[in-house]
């Protein structure tokens, strides 16, 4: 049982306040969807939790099982059990997917995986996400299509098996087939039962495949409404307009 607690989080980018007091608790076994219009600060929340240097935390705390993540470096947060699936995974020339994954798994587990076991896990993971095995030898994200990059993010999540996964618009730019494959991956990960998911999205489409337990509406840098899955249906019907007006 793990808990991610975000308490009154304030974050600025270049002196401009983007997050204005975010409060949210995610327990393992739960899936929380954060929905909001563009520019509402959803991605800022994801990157600030992960520790991207561009974002300055000006107030509040982020606790994972009582440990303040904000005191840790980016890699320490990942090793503490946090995972961020990026909206735009960067291409890293010269670093192969398999070399990268082995380094990441070794770092997170604290010891190098047995080569044969790792090869098997990697193959199974790639098969499940319909990733061509040849990708293992390619450079990280280099020349990958949008859908390939997202599937590769989910592969990393499954291999690293974090306590809490934050998925930043993993559904954006995916066609229906890719969305289904990615959603199945998220559901496999959820089915392990001891992990929590924070799903950040602009669209309700992915919520038909990945059923959330809680839905939060994000606008103007904070959560403005919270509810159950039915809130997503309301957003589907009415859009974000009422929230953007209210926060403006």
């Amino acid at each position: 049982m793990s808990t991610l607690e975000i308490r009154d989080l304030h974050v600025a980018v270049e002196d401009k306040e983007i997050l204005r007091g975010v409060n949210l608790t995610v327990n393992s076994g739960q899936t929380h969807a954060i929905m909001g219009p563009n520019g509402s600060g959803k991605s800022t929340l994801a990157y600030a939790i992960a520790g991207h240097p561009k974002y300055t935390v000006t107030g509040g705390r982020v606790l994972l099982d009582g440990v303040d993540l904000l005191e840790l470096s980016v890699d320490e947060r990942a090793r503490a059990g946090l995972f961020l699936a990026m909206q735009y995974p960067v291409e890293v020339p010269g670093v192969s997917v398999s070399n990268f994954l082995r380094s990441a798994v070794t770092a997170v587990r604290g010891e190098a995986p047995k080569l044969r076991e790792f090869a098997k896990d990697l193959k199974n993971g790639m098969d499940a996400l319909s990733i061509d095995p040849a990708f293992a030898q390619r450079n990280l994200n280099e020349g990958f299509s949008g859908g390939e990059k997202k599937r590769h993010e989910i592969l990393q999540m499954e291999l690293l098996n974090p306590k809490i996964a934050v998925l930043d618009e993993t559904d954006s730019g995916l066609d229906v087939d890719a969305l289904r494959v990615v959603s199945e991956g998220i559901n496999r990960f959820r089915a392990t039962g001891d992990t929590g998911v924070l799903l950040i999205t602009h669209y309700t489409r992915i919520l038909r495949y990945v059923k959330p337990d809680f839905v939060h509406v994000f606008a103007g840098g904070r959560i403005v409404e919270a509810g159950g899955p039915e809130l997503a249906d309301k957003l589907e019907a009415e859009g974000y307009e009422q929230y953007t007006k209210a926060s403006a």
Binding site: A50, G51, P53, S103
Partner: peptide, 13 residues
Amino acid sequence: EHIFYLQARGIPH
């Protein structure tokens, strides 16, 4: 951004 990506996967700086 390269370094951030690798670090976000647990790999030390």
